[in-house]
Design a protein around this nucleic acid. Structure first.
Length: 118
DNA sequence: ACTTTGACTATAA
DNA sequence: GTTATAGCCAAAG
């Protein structure tokens, strides 16, 4: 048997980020830091966003639009097909966006460490 | 193996 | 309130 894998290990940081991102309920949003913290790597908040770079290639589409920075700002909107796509998707789910910022972000915030701590 | 990057966050001014 | 700088970690070049 081959011990080596030709593909990335499912335990990779990226894969973990994708898994958590898919758990984000519709109409809710979270921050990169929250996901990173849930994975145990609080300081790797930047990697979370970077992982999203490959999210588009993932089989189950990763709702990257539900992931924003801690200010509720749609920082990754520029990485979508169109600059407004991210906002459109969020608004389509019931999340109101104003000035590229999630309205009542604090209320819609979904922290995996809190919601999945059961 | 080393350097650079990057969709962040926290603190300081 | 904003703007600037530093710290952080993991992956890609």
């Amino acid at each position: 048997m081959k011990s080596k894998k030709h593909t990335k290990n499912p335990d990779s940081f990226f894969e973990q980020v994708y898994s958590v991102a898919r758990l984000i309920p519709k109409g809710r949003v979270t921050s990169y830091g929250a996901i990173a913290r849930y994975l145990g790597t609080t300081g790797s908040s930047r990697m979370v966003g970077w992982a999203m770079n490959g999210a588009h290639s993932q089989k189950p589409r990763v709702p990257a639009q539900r992931v924003v920075n801690r200010n509720g700002l749609l920082t990754g909107k520029h990485h979508f097909g169109t600059p407004n796509l991210m906002q459109q998707l969020l608004e389509n789910e019931g999340v109101r966006i104003e000035n590229d910022v999630v309205v009542e972000f604090k209320k819609l915030f979904w922290d995996p460490s809190q919601e999945l701590m059961l």
